[in-house]
């Protein structure tokens, strides 16, 4: 049905790709791994201070697109990105942009919790240290506590900050990673299936946390769980084979999808 090798088809995403209050604007984004097209002519706005969810069958390019938003794709030699991705009207792929501060502004939480093999304290303190955010030791301690509190982990770890972060449970590790990201004071947080390795209780905690964080941060979350998207997000985008098929308010997209592919996916007839 979709032939990537043909001439660029006109991209007609169902639903309104634009929002009034956009933090990130993507226009005609293409991503290739060597010659293989992974994102095909995608345009989408990410709304400020809201949770946007990316859903779709695996391999459809959700992670690839998410990693474009903080230029993590730069680390993959074969990956090339074209098109515009504007953060506050500034193209983040412009040559004068330095990725290091960019990634401090746009934090990322990964699919598999990846705490450093350091103490819990050092994990959270890592970002403030490399960016020189703390003026003194006590200031740093405050920042670490603040980040851990926001991530809902403080009560569980406050007595063992000097123990390795890798010794925590899976859910705690993921919250530690969120705390580590928050500690850099990002404006946007990208999350790539943050709960895919967690049990339902740990998942519920993280979802709760996402809801709280959305008051302060702009959040983009990739998830393979439609229930999760329905629970935490305000806006949902459905990807299929590298294309953005449909985007809309979460409630609307799940109750009355307009595109056949979206409908098939959310009613479980696909993937």
């Amino acid at each position: 049905m979709d032939n990537f090798n043909g001439i660029e088809p006109p991209m007609d995403t169902v639903g309104n790709i634009r929002v009034n209050n956009a933090r990130i604007m993507c226009n005609n984004v293409f991503v290739h791994y060597s010659d293989k097209r992974a994102i095909d002519n995608l345009s989408l706005d990410i709304e400020a201070q809201k949770v946007t969810a990316f859903i779709g069958p695996s391999g459809c390019g959700k992670s690839t697109f998410l990693r474009c938003l903080n230029r993590m794709n730069d680390t993959i030699a074969t990956c090339s990105v074209t098109g515009e991705i504007l953060l506050d009207n500034q193209d983040i792929y412009a040559p004068e942009i330095d990725v290091v501060p960019l990634r401090a502004r746009i934090g990322m939480v990964f699919q598999k919790a990846n705490p450093f093999p350091k103490s819990i304290f050092d994990n959270v303190a890592y970002g403030p240290k490399i960016h020189g955010l703390a003026e003194s030791k006590s200031h740093l301690e405050n920042q670490v506590e603040e980040a851990l509190r926001r991530a809902g982990l403080w009560e569980e770890v406050k007595d063992r900050l000097d123990q390795p972060g890798t010794g925590l449970s899976g859910g705690q590790q993921q919250r530690l990673c969120i705390a580590r990201t928050i500690a850099v004071s990002p404006e946007i947080i990208l999350m790539d299936e943050p709960c895919s390795a967690l049990d339902p209780i740990a998942t519920a905690k993280i979802e709760e946390l996402i809801e709280e964080l959305s008051e302060k941060y702009t959040i983009v979350i990739v998830t393979h769980s439609m229930q999760q998207a329905a629970r935490v997000s305000h806006r949902t985008a459905y990807f299929h084979l590298g294309r953005l098929i449909e985007v809309g308010a979460t409630k609307e997209l799940f109750t009355s999808p307009h595109h056949k592919l979206t409908e098939n996916y959310i009613t479980g007839r696909f993937g």
Binding site: T75, G107, F110, K112, N114, P117, T181, V184
Partner: peptide, 27 residues
């Protein structure tokens, strides 16, 4: 040293040498 640790460091806005010095080499 797992790529995920490098991703974590880079994702927090480290430069390559900061990542090497503070995450990869200690690990």
């Amino acid at each position: 040293v797992p790529q995920s640790l490098r991703d974590a460091a880079l994702g927090l806005g480290s430069t390559r040498s900061e990542m090497t010095k503070q995450v990869v080499l200690p690990a």
